[in-house]
Every structure is written in structure tokens, then in C-alpha cells.
Simulated scan of single mutants.
Amino acid sequence: MTYCVGMMLNRGLVFMSDTRTNAGLDNISTFRKMSIWEEEGERCITLMSAGNLATTQAVVSELDERLKAPSERAPSLLAVPSMFQAARLVGETLRDVIDRQANSGQRADTAFNATLLLGGQIGDNPPRLFLIYPEGNFIEASEDTPFFQTGEIKYGRPILVRAYDPDMSFEEAMKLLLVSFDSTIKANLTVGMPVDYHCYTTDSLKTGVVGRVEGDAPYFQSISQGWGQALKDTLDSLAPFSFDD
């Protein structure tokens, strides 16, 4: 499994994804699940993936191949005129890849499904963020739903719901997301460090701050330990339960 978050802020978009893939407890690997396409000054698009690794890698490879030889029937992400059209293109590609894998050859025991998070900005249009389903359809983030999660979403969601603020800085968003990822990693072995991130600044139309946080990074360790202790201290400060009440 995996855990990915895409978040809209007033100053831009923040993306974070873990890197763990597994086919059982004895077969755990690390794969990058974030891809970025850029034409500086014109567009910057980020894609994160959760689900069957063969499916997601096939989608990214096909999108890369279209950059080399785009056509009317198979346009590239660097040619579509809007992020809505980019979401349609990625959704159609995902659906086609799943259909090809599911309907040809010997069927596997596991599903070929995958879910994608797509965000970015093209030209003068505002940044947009989409959650794309295996069927190829998608929904868009808004003021009411300013962030999307995919993969193991339930463990890290409470902190996002309680602490998200559209005015927060990229540094504050990174801290919030690392707490969310730490909570998920503590609760589910199918999500693991390191995590990749991309902070895109609105109207920059180029790749922003990109990096990777390792599990043994001092800051992540301080976040993990500090958050755990803060929760314990808060719990201890609450009024004790009494059966007499």
C-alpha cells in the first residue's frame, strides 16, 4: 500500500508521498511514487500514485513516451491547454492501462487498480489539484476540500482535518504532513520512510522545492518523538474518568 497527500495552500501546492511497496511481509521495496513534468515558465505538473506498482509505473512510462512523440490521439502533458485536460489525459491513460492488464494474459490474484493525485499549474490559470480514480474519472480540490489523500488515509487524516490552514507557510505544511505521515507509519506497516516532497509556488511555473526525508533524519525523529510525547501529556492533563459519574 502507500500514503500520498496533495494539499492546496494560498501560496501554492504541497505534495508528499511515501516510498514503500510490498507484496507480503518478506518482500518490501522502496520506489519513488512522485513524478514531475516541467516546462519552465509555462507549466509544472506533479503526479503521485497509490496502488498496483506495475499499473502506476506503466502509466508514468506511457506519459513519458508521449513527450517524445505526441499526436492528436495521444497528446502529452506538455501540450494540453489546462490542468483539467491534464487530468482527463491521465485518467484515460490509467483506465486504458488497467483495461489492458486485466483483460490480457493470465489473471493475477491481486487487482490492477491504482489511484492517482495530480496537481500543478498551466499558464495563467490557477493551480489545481485532482484525485483520479481507477475508472478514469476524477474530482477536484476546492475551498471545502483543500487536500486529497490516497492509500492508507485513515491514520493520518485527523491531524490534517484539525490543523490545516490555507494561510500556513510551506515550512508549517511540511511539519503538519510529517506528523500525518508519522501517525500513518506507526499504525500501518505497508507505509514507510523515506518520504518524497514537492512544494510548488503559485505562478512560478517551475519545479519548486523538491526533496526526500529519511526515517533517521534528526528533524523527523524530533517530530515523531515530540508528537508522541505531546499526545501523552495532553491525555494525562484531561480530567480522569470516574465510574461513579
Rank of each mutant, 00 (worst) to 15 (best):
M1V: 11
V5F: 10
M8S: 15
N10K: 13
R11G: 15
S17K: 01
S17F: 02
D18I: 05
R20T: 09
T21W: 00
T30M: 13
F31T: 03
R32E: 05
K33H: 05
E39A: 07
C44M: 09
C44S: 02
L47I: 00
A50R: 03
A54G: 15
A58V: 08
S61E: 12
E62L: 10
D64G: 00
E65N: 11
R66C: 02
R66Q: 10
L67D: 09
S71N: 10
S71V: 06
E72L: 15
E72N: 14
L77P: 04
A79R: 07
Q85H: 12
Q85T: 05
R95I: 00
I98R: 08
R100S: 06
S104V: 03
S104A: 06
D109H: 02
F112I: 00
F112A: 13
A114L: 02
F130K: 01
L131T: 01
L131R: 06
G136C: 10
N137K: 12
I139P: 01
A141L: 04
F147T: 09
F148G: 03
Q149C: 14
T150C: 10
G151D: 06
E152N: 12
P158F: 01
L160H: 12
D167E: 12
F170Y: 03
E172Y: 06
E172A: 15
M174D: 14
M174E: 12
L177M: 13
L178N: 12
S180D: 04
S180V: 01
F181I: 05
D182C: 03
T184I: 01
M193L: 08
P194K: 00
V195T: 06
D196V: 11
Y197I: 11
H198I: 00
H198N: 02
Y200M: 13
Y200I: 11
T202R: 07
D203E: 06
T207A: 10
T207M: 08
G211C: 08
R212N: 08
V213E: 02
S224L: 03
W227A: 14
G228W: 11
Q229F: 15
L231W: 09
L231P: 01
D233W: 12
D236F: 14
D236K: 15
S237Q: 14
L238A: 09
P240A: 11
D245E: 14
D245I: 14
